[in-house]
Amino acid sequence: MALLPIAEAQARLLALAGRMPVERVPLAEAVGRWVAEPIAARRTQPESDLSAMDGYAIRFADLPGPWRVIGESAAGNGFDGTVAAGEAVRIFTGAPLPAGADSVLVQEEANRDGDALHLAGEGPRHVGRNTRRRGLDFFQNDVLIAPGERLTPARIALAAIAGHADIAVRRKVRVAIAATGDELVPPGEPVGPAQLPESNRMMLAAQFADLPVDIVDLGILPDDLVTLTNAFATVDADLLVTSGGASVGDHDLVRPALEAAGATIDFWRIALRPGKPMMAGRRGDMVVLGLPGNPVSVFVTALLFAKPMVAHLAGAANPFPTPRLVLLGEDLPANGPRTDYIRAVTLDGRVHPAAIQDSSMLRTLARSTCLIIREPHAAAANAFELVEILDIA
């Protein structure tokens, strides 16, 4: 069976399911979610001309003064009158610019004696200096945030100042996580000679932590076809992610259990190192992802497939991680027929691959800050060449 290229596998994975239903949530609960409907401004910001500095509101045509101070304008408490020729109003940052005034003389360039005001510097260099004009940020009905954009803290603030108290987003994704294998025991419990502490569920949950998910922990499932089938047939989730049992050995029962539970496998085995024995399909409306068992393979396949699938379901316009170019710190050999994701660290503007790349070595992964991407059949690369990386820390 030919191995499926990564880009094709990613496209086929996203095609397995559409977006989650839309719901409205308060702004305080919307951070990290993806916008489902355009967010348009319900007001203009600022709604009037404002001062950008502490000083005096004046008419530019009256320079170089002098002026008579006729009042004060503060944020939330503006001056109701009109500034006429030779007049000025004491003004503070964020306060509305009085009618008639068109510029602000900063207080460092002003000399005031009672109500008499004189120029003590260069003064504003042009009309409108040291002011923020109405609509400088946006006007009412401007579309500020498009569907598919993520609600970062700055976008939350933008939505709030635009007049929104709640936002239309996609429902959180229910993600079921299961580890499979008779050799696995929960972390912290005694480990026998043929056993191993289970780590993949914890790692997957941590990888999903910054996404809008509700985790369903199916625990550690034994290498038993009936037990696996029952678990997969009864789970209520939008996405089922398993680790282990996805290869072709006698004890690799995830695929037959999924099929016995009513799942259809769309693809299996991809041109990826680490992580070749990965499968994807559907059981009803639920997407299923069978990841390998080795921890590094789980991490990489989750980064490239599981996390993007969650982001896609949650409404992301661009769910996949974005690589960047960095100078290589040392030579790399030519690559084989699979796309290789090499654990590495960035130091002094260059990237350095780890010496050993075994897919069971969590210590190397934990020390890594990025993955070097090596395309299939890539030629040998020399130090100081540009290579693509994915940041992971």
Rank of each mutant, 00 (worst) to 15 (best):
I342K: 02
A74P: 00
V106Y: 03
R42V: 10
A159I: 06
Q45T: 09
E375D: 13
W67Q: 11
P26R: 05
R125C: 04
L258S: 07
A75L: 06
A314M: 02
A317H: 07
G284I: 00
A75E: 04
P277C: 05
P64H: 07
G148V: 01
P353G: 09
N111W: 13
A99F: 06
A314T: 02
Q107M: 08
G121V: 04
A85I: 14
D252H: 11
R129P: 01
W268C: 07
A316S: 14
I372P: 05
G128F: 13
D224A: 13
V296T: 07
M20Q: 08
A116Q: 12
L303Y: 10
G281K: 05
P321T: 07
P308T: 06
G329K: 13
V25M: 01
P222Y: 06
G121P: 04
A393F: 05
E8A: 12
E189M: 09
L105H: 06
M53S: 14
T180Q: 01
R170F: 00
R24E: 04
R59M: 09
P153H: 08
G76T: 07
L211G: 00
G55C: 09
P193T: 11
E375W: 04
V169W: 00
D49E: 12
F92V: 03
A302P: 01
D331I: 03
V127H: 10
G245R: 10
E109D: 15
P197V: 02
P212Y: 00
S243D: 00
V287D: 00
L325S: 15
V127R: 15
E122V: 05
P187R: 12
F267G: 12
A317C: 08
L211H: 01
V310I: 02
D210H: 02
A311R: 04
R273E: 13
E259A: 09
L14P: 03
G94T: 08
P222A: 09
M278K: 11
A178E: 03
N382C: 10
V25E: 00
H118W: 11
R374Y: 11
G336S: 12
V345N: 13
I70Q: 07
M202T: 11
D217C: 00
S73A: 09
R33C: 06
V173P: 00
I270N: 01
T227E: 14
A334K: 06
M203P: 03
V351D: 08
T131A: 05
V387S: 05
Q140H: 06
S359G: 04
L239T: 03
L16S: 10
A61W: 05
D348R: 11
T82M: 14
E388N: 14
N77F: 08
R59T: 03
E330M: 15
F320R: 14
F299E: 02
A120W: 04
G188Q: 03
T346K: 13
D113L: 05
I58A: 11
L119F: 03
E8G: 04
I70W: 08
P321Q: 09
F79S: 09
L144S: 09
Y341C: 10
N382H: 12
L253S: 14
S199L: 08
A11E: 15
A176V: 00
A383I: 05
A41G: 14
M53Q: 14
E8D: 12
R134T: 08
G55H: 09
T339R: 13
A379T: 14
G71T: 05
A260P: 01
L347K: 12
